[in-house]
Design a protein around this nucleic acid. Structure first.
Lengths: 115, 115
DNA sequence: AGTTTTGATTACCTCAAGGTAACTGATTAC
DNA sequence: GTAATCAGTTACCTTGAGGTAATCAAAACT
């Protein structure tokens, strides 16, 4: 069944290692390239650059170049990006519940095997 | 922020190319290995085998071996798996909306560049 | 004996996401 | 002139998900 296409679309938009972290960083108020980069440990400029492009294409953020002294770019979240909050909340919710189901009581202790 | 850990968990469980297709196939009533395999074009036995194991670990399905003639295994969806329906619906919903936003009117025509 | 069907496992290959690191170009400050 | 800061780009490498194909074991049928 390809009623799954829209699901795939969504997963493409928020999937991958960095997209959500970057989006949240921008939601939190980080506007400039280096600012966002510094707010996320281990994130490289190459990956950030690519992800920001993707996110702009998907209309999750806007990019504005401020001409001036040491050249600044400003990234801002769109209203459209805010509609993701509900989706993310559902994913979060299910995840919390799933952890309880799988690990029981000690959900916090087990499985910190992710970067 | 690692409040994203549960989100990652959820994405791990439903992410990847095949997991949702397999889950839906089982939801639809397919019970046996070959039956599931045949219901999903291009899915190889190796991948199916691996995904079914993952899904069993994540308590989305149960596996029962029926001893008999040409050995049969029975896969069945759990109640826990049903709690994913809401999540999938949200992903679907957002995806549909996103398509409209990005492609406008001709959402159906554009971007069938996925297998 | 040989083929078919079930449910897999194993070895090998491919490809894209992501990681590493060096470099560009513009401008201001030292 | 040299360094620093901003916003990237480019070339190269690594890793893991997934694809391909052969093989295994057990029983039933022919």
């Amino acid at each position: 069944m390809s009623a799954l296409l829209p699901v795939r679309d969504t997963l493409d938009v928020i999937g991958g290692k960095w997209k959500l972290l970057i989006l949240i960083s921008i939601w939190e108020g980080n506007k400039h390239f280096r600012e966002i980069e510094r707010s996320i440990p281990k994130l490289s400029t190459k990956v950030l650059s690519k992800e920001l492009k993707d996110m702009e294409e998907n209309q999750l953020i806007t990019r504005t170049i401020l001409n001036g002294f040491p050249v600044r770019t400003e990234y801002r979240p769109t209203e459209h990006s805010k509609t993701l909050e509900k989706v993310i909340f559902e994913l979060y919710n299910w995840g919390v519940n799933h952890r309880k189901k799988i690990f029981g009581a000690n959900s916090e202790i087990v499985s910190s095997n992710r970067t």
